Amino acid sequence: MAGYVELFRVGKSYPSPKGPAVIVHDFSLNIDQGEFVALIGHSGCGKSTVLSMIAGLSECTTGAIVVANREIDGPGPDRGVVFQSPCLLPWLNALENVLLGVDRVYPHISRTQRRELAAYHLQLVGLGDSLERRANEMSQGMQQRVGIARAFAISPKMLLLDEPFGMLDSLTRMELQEVLADLLARDRKTSLMVTHDVDEALLMADRIVMMTSGPAATIGEIVDVPFARPRNRTAVLNHPDYYPLRERLIEFLENQAHQPAEPGAVVRFDSAESATSTHQPQTAAVARRA
């Protein structure tokens, strides 16, 4: 069954004196519209490479990627990206940084309307009183709020998050997880988030895709997250499936260096007591384009 986002046998390699260095190999995944997928794995396994290819910032060596029935061929406003570092222009204020994207995507509306749109999204992330504050005067957490507002303000079809809270302290990280969850409750965007944090993945995601260790990393296992939405952190932590799922993720990560999982295996965790394995269906719509 085709997905809203389809990755079909995607691979990425770079030339080297000893031949192609394969970073990602045979990566196939469907993401449904409105679904939130977390991508986890050891450092250097290619998680950010996969995200970068979906964003159009890096070309696929093999395979194809389709977003909303269009094969991507480069960056575009249909995909909003939030990086680990907010990547703001330090001499511009919060409103001006968000307007950089809004002005490009909505040139047909008035300047006043564009400013109102940017200000509205800054208000949603808790910066309604800091519109005129320059980026270099903001804390790291405030800067990341601007980055999140900028991504949502252009109304992308897909949201790509590359360890967006990885540089923040634990308290700020939890606050911004709540900010992101509130935004997604308002506007359920199709989302892919790269993270090292299994607790963050369990809190935010509908499915967690675990990558094998490189080189030639691919999908090792996929875990379905059964927690109802909207989610409450306390309710998630108290759910009977939480700690068995958490242990499953940690076990996979710990075992990767010694016994990589079979590529394509999908773990569907239906209760706290049992798990079953299946295999991913081929992404047919992408196959037709490959």
Results as ranks from 00 to 15, higher is better:
Ser191Asn: 06
Ala228Gln: 12
Ala217Ile: 05
Thr234Pro: 10
Leu127Val: 05
Thr212Asn: 13
Ala151Phe: 00
Ile222Glu: 01
Glu221Lys: 10
Asp187Glu: 05
Leu124Asn: 11
Met138Gly: 07
Val194Asp: 00
Glu175Gly: 10
Ala217Trp: 00
Ala205Arg: 06
Glu175Arg: 13
Ser139Met: 12
Leu176His: 00
Ala228Lys: 13
Gln140Thr: 13
Leu202Cys: 13
Thr195Cys: 07
Thr172Ile: 07
Lys157Met: 08
Asp197Met: 05
Arg186Ile: 03
Glu132Val: 14
Asp199Leu: 10
Arg229Ile: 11
Asp169Ala: 12
Met193Ala: 01
Lys157Ala: 09
Ala235Phe: 11
Ala235Glu: 14
Ala118Val: 02
Thr195Phe: 00
Arg115Met: 10
Ala228Pro: 09
Gln140Asn: 13
Asp182Met: 15
Asn232Ser: 15
Met174Ile: 14
Leu171Gln: 14
Phe165Gly: 03
Arg133Asp: 00
Gly147Val: 08
Leu159Ala: 13
Val146Asp: 00
Val198Ser: 08
Gln143Leu: 09
Thr190Gly: 01
Leu203Lys: 06
Leu180Phe: 07
Tyr120Glu: 12
Phe165Thr: 03
Glu132His: 14
Ala228Cys: 06
Gly128Asp: 09
Leu117Glu: 08
Glu200Val: 08
Ala185Ile: 12
Leu117Asn: 09
Met158Pro: 10
Met211Tyr: 03
Glu200Pro: 04
Val146Lys: 05
Met210Val: 15
